[in-house]
C-alpha cells in the first residue's frame, strides 16, 4: 500500500502550522502586514493568519500530492517533520520569543 497520499497530507499540514507561525511573527514586525491580515475587524489579524495559513497548506498539497501519491515514502521522517513544524509553530506564537527576536 502506497503511503504517499498520507505523506502529502501530513507535510502540507505541517506547512500550514509553520505558515501560521511565520505570519504571526510578520504581523508583529509590521503594522502594514497586520492590517493586511485583518480580514475581519472583530477577530483582528488572527482571521488572516488562519485563512492564509490554510491556503498556503492547500497550495502546497496541490503541488506535493501529484508527486507523492503513487510513491512509498519514509513515513517516520514525514511524521518527525510534522512534530518539528508543530514545535516551531508554537514557538513562533509565544510572545516572549517574538519579543526576543524583534
Amino acid at each position: 500500500m502506497n503511503n504517499g497520499r498520507a505523506a502529502s497530507i501530513i507535510i502540507s499540514s505541517g506547512i500550514t502550522l509553520i505558515s501560521i507561525g511565520i505570519l504571526n511573527i510578520l504581523a508583529e514586525a509590521s503594522e502594514n502586514i497586520k492590517s493586511f491580515l485583518t480580514l475581519n475587524q472583530s477577530v483582528g489579524p488572527y482571521s488572516g493568519k488562519i485563512l492564509f495559513g490554510i491556503l498556503i497548506g492547500v497550495l502546497m498539497w496541490l503541488i506535493i500530492n501529484p508527486n507523492l501519491k503513487n510513491k512509498n515514502v519514509n513515513l517516520d521522517k514525514v511524521f518527525n517533520f510534522l512534530i518539528i513544524a508543530l514545535l516551531l509553530a508554537t514557538l513562533f506564537v509565544f510572545t516572549p520569543f517574538i519579543e526576543l527576536i524583534l
Binding site: 497530507i9 499540514s13 509553530a89 506564537v93 509565544f94
Partner: peptide, 22 residues
C-alpha cells in the same frame, strides 16, 4: 502570553486531529 498562545494552539489541535482522522 496565555491568550496569544491559546488562540493558536486551539487551531493546531484542529490541524493535528484532521491528520489523525485522515
Amino acid at each position: 502570553i496565555l491568550m496569544e498562545l491559546k488562540e493558536f494552539t486551539g487551531f493546531y489541535v484542529l490541524v493535528l486531529t484532521f491528520v489523525l482522522t485522515y
